[in-house]
Design a protein around this nucleic acid. Structure first.
Lengths: 191, 191
DNA sequence: GTTCAAACTAAGCGATAGATTAGTTTAATT
DNA sequence: AATTAAACTAATCTATCGCTTAGTTTGAAC
């Protein structure tokens, strides 16, 4: 015997996610969320508890969204070139109206300090851990390298990827392309 | 016929700089600055105009502080190893109580969006441009590479450095060391 | 020692932050 | 059609934001 919601939670969260992605957690106010999500603050708080709740759901949403390019990498044959493809896919993925927004999770990682929420930290850590595993798998295809070398390479590419996502927000395309090419060109002699 | 200031502006700015370095621009309030700088808000505003004025002076202060490791690089013999030394120097430099704070300028770069203050942006750009020149000079010592290749390498190392400063705030020392070693190890065959 | 402009203190300005409340509307259930 | 619990609206809560102001103290110049 109750009224039905006028909005779908996953739809308004996607809008919230885009706002957080563009502006970061701190610079996004509940009034901005209200406007962007198209629902009243009361509805926001009754659905997600508080601002952090909205953010946590936004991270879930981001994970689903980035999963399209992660899946794309999973379906590639493997080897260095497959990961290079992921780097370029990410640059497209992270752009909106030709403005690079970086990676929501990497942005969060740098925005939140040492004393920040542990749940959020764990989510970021989980994301990078999964990416490391995928990179390792892809590097293990058609290679003579021992597992130790592969682990080093995977770690190197993970750090490069996180660095890239930050740097892409500011540096121009030529610098970025040059960076990616050099990153992978230099890895070849190790193979 | 006037009273003398009880504080030295460069001393209180250094304290402000450390606060901005730890927390970023947005997350640092004028009350926090008041407490950290040890002077009243009135004094802050009469000396530096507004919060952004404090930040701009903090950037100057940061530039002076990081200049110690930049000078150290300038005085090195040159070649890849000299820049690798700078990377490790930076890791030490950016730590406080064993907590990595990243690079104040790189942090600012990522914190401020597309529509941020142009003066601040110019300062960040100026910093990276100077570092690029220095890297180029150091790479030009004892090498057979053409200027085009050197330019690519210098750009690669600049982007790597900026990425490193961000990533160092979260990743552990093993991952960071591995990243630096791989970055430079892989560059050798190009020389 | 008196003067007085600048350096102080502390209170408070309007605006906005995250979050909540009282009161109204809605629609599935009876 | 009446009921009723949840979904709504809009106003408002307290705290804090960046910044300013009124009033007091200070100390170099005279």
């Amino acid at each position: 015997m109750a009224r039905t919601k006028k909005y779908k939670e996953d739809e308004v969260i996607e809008k919230a996610m885009n706002l957080f992605w563009r502006n970061g957690f701190e610079a996004t106010s509940t009034r901005m969320l209200e406007k962007e999500m198209g629902i009243n603050q009361f509805s926001i708080y009754s659905s997600f508890g508080n601002k952090e709740g909205v953010f946590l759901e936004s991270m879930k949403c981001y994970n689903q969204k980035i999963n399209t390019i992660v899946k794309k990498l999973e379906n590639r044959e493997g080897g260095i070139e497959s990961i290079k493809g992921y780097f370029y896919d990410f640059l497209d993925f992270s752009k909106e109206n030709n403005i690079a927004k970086g990676c929501l999770l990497a942005n969060t990682m740098t925005e939140l300090g040492a004393d920040s929420d542990l749940v959020i930290k764990a989510k970021v850590h989980n994301f990078t851990a999964n990416l490391l595993i995928l990179f390792t798998e892809k590097l293990s295809v058609n290679t003579n390298c021992d597992t130790n070398t592969i682990a080093k390479q995977a770690n190197y590419l993970l750090v490069s990827m996180m660095g890239l996502s930050q740097v892409s927000k500011v540096f121009d395309r030529l610098q970025i392309d040059n960076y990616i090419e050099t990153t992978f060109e230099n890895l070849k002699p190790m193979m």
